[in-house]
Simulated scan of single mutants.
Amino acid sequence: MIRRLAQSRALLRRLAADSSGATLIEFAFVGPVLILMIMGLFDIAHTQYTASVLHGAMQKAGRDLTLENATSREANLDSRVRAQVATVMPNSATVTVEKLSHFDFSDIDQPEEILGDDPTGNTGNGVCEGSKNERYVDTNDNSRWDADRGRDGIGGARDAVIYTARVSYPRLFPMYGLAGLSQNITIEASTVLRNQPFDEQNDRITTERDCP
């Protein structure tokens, strides 16, 4: 009985001193974190490279859009942007292009002006309210008040144009679930330009309409 107890203690001491298999257990803790970090670095690198390609394509297209014959080449320029971005994108990626023309650079990202019935004009609350007898200047001439006064398209001579491209695609590495990230990535690039020729611009639209 005593000898069996001594043998059992000796076995326990050998098991306690045995480190074989410890590496596998340690890797089970460290491995997922390491793999997640590696995939995350690749994902960040690909995103940065894609953004660089997109910005380069937009800058080239922006320079071409300033030329006088840009209207006839507009669709071709959009296709070139999509084709260049597609070289680093998965097949399921979507590319949307938007062009908004403005009378001047100061109009970019500005809402259409709201006019009140008081002598100071603008009400200041940023809401076009017909119940308060307010009116607005329909800068883009589309018969509705807009939070962005830009008009669709590249406009005419001397107009300021903001040219934007958005790319959305699923992540290349299956790490988004582990890191709590969204499955899709959206990248946006914009360029601002002024159309040529610079001395033949149409008059600014000042049509006033009633707020809805």
Rank of each mutant, 00 (worst) to 15 (best):
Q7A: 14
Q7D: 13
R9E: 06
L11I: 06
L15G: 03
E26Q: 10
A28D: 08
V30P: 01
M39V: 11
F42H: 05
A45F: 15
A45E: 12
H46F: 11
S52Y: 08
V53W: 06
V53K: 05
V53H: 05
H55N: 14
G56R: 03
R63Q: 10
A70F: 00
A70Q: 03
A75M: 07
N76R: 10
D78P: 01
S79T: 15
V81C: 01
A83S: 15
Q84S: 12
M89N: 02
T96F: 10
V97S: 02
K99Y: 09
E112H: 03
E113F: 07
D118Y: 07
P119M: 13
T120A: 12
T120L: 11
T123Q: 07
E134M: 14
V137E: 00
N140Q: 11
N142Y: 04
W145H: 06
D146N: 14
R149W: 06
G150P: 05
G150E: 10
D159W: 02
D159A: 10
A160Q: 11
A160R: 06
T164H: 07
T164S: 09
T164G: 03
R166K: 12
Y169G: 01
L172A: 10
I185C: 02
A189T: 01
S190Y: 02
S190W: 03
L193R: 09
Q196N: 14
Q201F: 02
D203W: 12
I205F: 04
I205E: 09
